[in-house]
């Protein structure tokens, strides 16, 4: 019982809240790139925020139900339709919960904005659990089966939050541990525009812009890093993504604040982005407000879903 992959789109993986607490073994946390959108999809089917979802990148693909499934879609807007057994078509308007009957297909197009869309199922996808998480970087392939419990759910479309385009606002940053090495890089970071490079993925985003010069230090030792770290790799800046390794050898110039990490996951190649410095106190306040806001939204949705 579950969902069969017909066409896995551009890069679809199963992700959840990731593996917390294994960095000292070199195991990154990983997990969904846009935790808010994934949490929204989960809330719509009554799941806890960290349940396993499918993460689609830029193009969703096509999937067929093996049984009745209670599903929800949220995240980057993608054309979404259900192909019914008699080939008639039912349009979906994400974010939304919906049901696939046995044999029905979900067909997802190309994201019109953003980069990542999430598909939740009531109870979570029951793919293998390793070190407390179902997150894997392996792309789904045609004929893969995503196991899930059968279920049913009324269609529910939350009125908020409105979809926000990631590159509309600057990404807020704190100085990194190596900021003192590179005052001219700090200046460049907040005064220039950068383009997201085409080779960007869950490991990291390349920032294309004017080259930046910094004398390299070959004796430099690797040091712990975290998603959102902005490093100077050669003459180019990179921002580490959610699936980046636990250690890095390049100078760590700046760090994207936690509250803006989800938006990193919604940047597509070619998007323009800007950075703005804030203080640690502001970053912690924004982080707190962001966590409170998401808790409030998810609990409202959970209530509404229960009422039907």
């Amino acid at each position: 019982m579950g969902l069969i992959v017909i066409d896995p789109g551009q890069a679809a993986t199963v992700q959840d809240g990731g593996r917390a607490g294994y960095r000292h073994w070199g195991v990154p946390r990983g997990g969904v790139f846009d935790t808010f959108s994934a949490g929204l999809a989960n809330a719509l089917v009554g799941n806890p925020s960290g349940s396993a979802v499918v993460e689609f990148t830029l193009r969703g693909g096509e999937y067929q139900a093996e049984g009745p499934l209670a599903l929800a879609l949220a995240g980057a807007p993608m054309p979404a339709r259900v192909i019914e057994a008699d080939s008639s078509i039912r349009l979906l308007e994400p974010p939304t919960s919906f049901v696939l009957k046995p044999g029905e297909r979900l067909r997802l197009g190309v994201a019109t904005q953003g980069a990542r869309t999430y598909l939740a199922v009531r109870g979570g996808w029951q793919t293998p659990l390793v070190l407390g998480s179902r997150s894997f970087e392996t792309y789904l392939r045609p004929r893969d089966l995503l196991p899930a419990e059968p279920g049913s759910i009324p269609v529910h479309r939350p009125r908020e939050p409105a979809w926000e385009i990631s590159s509309d606002r600057p990404f807020r940053v704190l100085p990194g541990p190596d900021a003192a090495l590179a005052s001219h890089v700090l200046e460049a970071l907040s005064s220039r525009l950068f383009h997201v490079g085409s080779s960007s993925n869950r490991m990291g985003l390349r920032l294309e812009g004017e080259p930046i010069e910094l004398a390299s230090d070959p004796s430099r030792l690797s040091t712990p890093v975290a998603p959102g770290a902005i490093q100077l790799a050669g003459r180019e800046l990179i921002v580490l993504g959610v699936a980046s390794g636990t250690m890095g050898g390049y100078p760590h110039i700046a760090q994207v604040v936690t509250a803006d990490l989800d938006r990193l996951g919604q940047l597509a190649p070619g998007d323009v982005l800007r950075f703005a410095w804030i203080t640690l106190d502001e970053a912690r306040r924004i982080d707190r407000e962001s966590r409170e806001r998401r808790r409030a939204i998810f609990s409202r949705i959970a209530m509404a879903t229960r009422v039907g």
Binding site: R23, H24, S222, A226, M247, R284, R291
Partner: peptide, 22 residues
């Protein structure tokens, strides 16, 4: 305290602000 990561002369300490005041 979620993770303590030693690396050469550095140690990173990761924390969960829902559980501890940073």
């Amino acid at each position: 305290v979620v993770d303590v990561v030693p690396a050469y002369r550095d140690v990173a300490v990761f924390a969960d602000p829902d559980v501890v005041d940073l």
